[in-house]
Amino acid sequence: MIAHLFSTSAGRGRRFSILAAGCLMLAIPGAFAQEVAAPAAGVPANGDEIQQFCTNIADAARDQRYVLQKQNLEELQAKVDERIATLEKRRTEYQDWLKRRDDFLKEAELGLTDIYKNMKPDAAAGQLELINPAVAAAIVMRLPPRLSSLILSEMTSEKAAVLANIISSASNPNTSKEPS
């Protein structure tokens, strides 16, 4: 039968078109097995579908964005709280250190004042000329006035004038009480 199909020229044209159609069907598997689904009635066109999809998920996307922002804010708040706690701890440590330092300085000044109170005026004057003028002025101010005047009289006039200026500016009511 196959030989008969190929023997006539008219049969050859039909056979070729049937054969070509079969090859085409084999080349595209399932192409003719399914029907192409026609767009359903009422389904919007492609651009409208996208717009409708975006509109439908806008609330959910906004809610998710708010949740992420809330999580970020909570993380930042936790970090800020942690830093505040660290700063409070350090502030407490600093205040404790400052109190101990101030107590020590008061004791040292009282002890130092007692030391200079028991010294001879000429020896005290020689030592006070060598230390910081502000410290020397503080010591001289704590001493009894008679002893202070004897010590200042034993000092060089330049050093005594510097100490007198510091003492007078400390007692000046126009001097600012707040350090600047």
Rank of each mutant, 00 (worst) to 15 (best):
S149T: 10
S7F: 04
Q77D: 15
A170E: 09
I57N: 01
Q51C: 02
A41R: 09
M119H: 07
N118I: 01
L73F: 15
R146G: 10
T92A: 08
T86I: 11
M141S: 13
G22M: 08
T55I: 00
T55N: 08
N172A: 06
R146Y: 13
L128K: 02
I131Q: 03
K106T: 05
N165H: 15
F32I: 04
K70Q: 15
F53G: 00
Q51E: 06
I84V: 12
R100S: 03
L5N: 03
I166N: 07
I50K: 02
L112R: 00
L76M: 11
P39Y: 14
P29L: 06
A31S: 06
I2E: 07
K99S: 06
A21V: 10
N132V: 01
A108R: 05
M119F: 11
D122N: 09
R65W: 14
N118A: 06
T8D: 15
N132D: 14
P29C: 09
E88W: 03
D48E: 10
A45W: 13
A20Q: 09
E129A: 07
A136V: 03
S176G: 08
S17L: 11
P39T: 12
Q95N: 11
N172M: 01
L112W: 15
A40V: 14
N118D: 15
T8A: 07
P179M: 05
T55F: 08
I166W: 07
P39K: 04
A134K: 08
D103R: 05
E49N: 03
Q51S: 06
N72T: 09
R146N: 06
N72A: 12
S171G: 10
Q69F: 03
G126R: 12
G11D: 10
N118K: 07
R65V: 08
D96E: 13
T113C: 02
G11E: 08
F6S: 05
A10L: 13
Q52L: 11
D63A: 11
F16E: 13
T113H: 04
T156S: 10
I131S: 06
R62K: 09
P121R: 05
G13W: 14
S9V: 13
L5Y: 14
D48H: 08
S157C: 01
A125D: 14
D63W: 10
E129M: 01
T86E: 15
A21K: 05
E35F: 11
A20D: 12
R146Q: 10
Y66C: 09
E129R: 00
F16I: 13
L128D: 10
Y116K: 00
G42M: 01
K120W: 08
I28D: 06
V43F: 14
Q95L: 07
A108I: 05
E107P: 03
A78D: 07
A40P: 13
I57L: 02
L143T: 03
